[in-house]
Amino acid sequence: MPERMSFFIPRESRIHSLNPLTKLTLAFSLIIIAFFCPGLFLPITINFLVLVPLSFLGKVGKEFIQTSIRLLLPLFAFLFVMQSLFYPGGKTELFGIWIFSVTSEGVVFAFRTATRILVMVSSFLLLLLTTHPSALMSDLARRGVPASLSFIITSTLQIIPQMQAKAATIQDAQRSRGLDTGGNLINRIRSLLPLVGPLVFSSLVDVEERAIAIEARAFTLPVEKTSLVEIPDSPAEAILRWFLAAVAIITIGYRIWLSLSSRI
């Protein structure tokens, strides 16, 4: 499986050297604004006037655009076709195809949904392209997220490639024993069973020993842990984070106020 197993691209940039929590806060604030602020063109503005320039500042602009197209194009194509054709309650017909009619309400709805999802995915992409997952996790652990949580996430990132290799080995072995893994549905389902069993089993037999190994390294000792890598942070960034959080909260408040007042 040639899928690259992390989005992170190690480069030197202003965005890379930001504290991970700052980037995480930025992502969440932009998503909240995109979803809760009225304004049909707000999300797409955020994407092209905030996220895209930031990605170029972070020297990952090309990858940023490529990855978002790869991740979102199929979804958006599907979304536009289905929504413009089937949007319930569409009245203003733009044009008709066979028995279907494309309504402007449907197109607007698809546009709104798509641009919001675009902001959601792109905000995270900016974070992920410029932040090593373990830096994010150790920064969160330092701020009080339980160590076991960051342990789980970082070790999963290491186990997945190993397990992919293991799965490939099992599949090769199956093929060399003449098991048909292509063709019709029944064949494909049948090829799955002898894969799942061995894969799960071989991965879980080692669990006991690995638990002993991390106990032997005092993982469960009830003292406050320290961290080898110190992740840079600054008071200016802290202020920026508080500012972003405040904007997000105000946005939600504004939205609640809007919907309450429209109901009266």
């Binding site: 090593h132 373990s134 960051s150 342990f151 970082t154 070790s155 290491q158 186990i159 080692d206 020993e209 690995r210 190994a213 991390i214 032997a216 390294r217 993982f219």
Partner: peptide
């Protein structure tokens, strides 16, 4: 099995 798994 003795590698903690959480370090790179």
């Amino acid at each position: 099995n003795q590698i903690s798994g959480s370090k790179f």
